[in-house]
Each structure stands twice: as structure tokens, then as C-alpha cells.
Amino acid sequence: MLIREIGVLIRKEFDLEIRNKVAIGGILLYVVTTVFLCYLSFRELQDTTVWNTLFWVILLFSALNTISKSFQTESRYRLLYLYTLVSPAAVILSKMIYNILLMGITALVTLLFYSLFLGTSPLEGANAGMYLVALLLGCAGFAGIFTMIAAIAAKTGNQLGIMAILGFPLILPLLLTLIGLSGIALRGLPWEYGTTELLILTGLNILIAALSYILFPYLWRE
């Protein structure tokens, strides 16, 4: 039942996104512009640590931008309408899964343009599998935390500002662990070196999903 509801809601999100191509185009343009700005400021980055950190910071801001609109587009009346049809857990989980997919696309596009402009040298000799896993876990974590924060911030007038204030301190354990894990991957070390980070990231993602599942119904109730 819940799974079917989630499936329908995700399809709804996709339909809306495709109907309104400006939104996804805006996100991609945001990413490309930011990367280009960094390129003009830095020219080329030889240092792997700086390359890695800057990439995650860019991705963090594009996540904030992408996900901030996930509850903005829902008007009060549409939320009420959804409330009569589906369970609140289905709403938050579907938004989360949809945002993970959206973040995955954003991350891949960012990585493409980022390595195109700022140099591919750090990627050569990297542990590609581990790097992709880091990217995936990162997208899931960003999407998870920011979806919940967006739901909270949607109750206030100043969505984007409040989201940054509420979200950045909370995203920190995730961001630091991600920078650590992708740094290990970029140095080309085998999987054993990243076990702690992998465990922390997986645990955090499960924790965030569980918390959102438990807490969202209270937020939803008017």
C-alpha cells in the first residue's frame, strides 16, 4: 500500500518536472554557472584536497537550491488534498526518493563540468568504485536532510534563508565524512581504508530516513 502510494507520488513529481522544464533547466544552469565561476577564479586545481573539497561545497549549495523548492511548489490546498488521499509517510518518502534521483543527476552533471573545467588529474588513478559510492551516499544524505529541513522551512516565510541556517550545521557530519571518503577514493586506496566512513555514511542515511518517517506526520498535521 505504502509502496504503491510512493510510486504514484514519485510519478506525479516527474510529470510536474517534465511539464515545467524551466525548473530542471534552472538547476543545471546553476551548477554550470557555479563551476564556470570557480574555473575563472581558480583556473586549474592541481591539489587533490582542494579539488575534492570545492566539489562537495558546490554540490552542497546546488543541493540546497534544488531541494528548497520541493515543498514550495505544493500549495496549502494541494497539501490538504494529498492529505485526504495518502499517508504522510508516503509524501515524505516519495519526495526524498525523488530528490535523491534529482541529486544524482545534478551530481553527475556537476562532476562532468567540474572535471572538464578544473582538471581531471585528481580522478586519474582513483578508486572509481569507491568514489561513485561516495557520490551516491552523498546525494542520498543531502537529499534526506534537506528534504526534511525544506518541509520545516516551508512553514516559515523565508524559505531559502531559514534552510541554510537550519541545514548547514546538521549537514556537517555528513559533509566531513564524505570529504574524507572521497579523499580516500581519489588517492586510489583499496576499500579497507574507507570502512569506517562507509559505515558512518550508511548509518547516517538510515537514521535520517527513519527520523523523517517518524517526525514528518507531526509536521504535516494542521
Partner: peptide, 15 residues
């Protein structure tokens, strides 16, 4: 809303 944020933030803070 504040209560929801408080619970969410506290758990992540402990982590």
C-alpha cells in the same frame, strides 16, 4: 515545527 526540528537536530547532533 520547533519541536520537530528540535528532535531531528538533537539526534544528528549526538551523531
Amino acid at each position: 515545527v520547533a519541536a520537530v526540528y528540535n528532535v531531528f537536530a538533537y539526534v544528528i547532533l549526538i551523531v
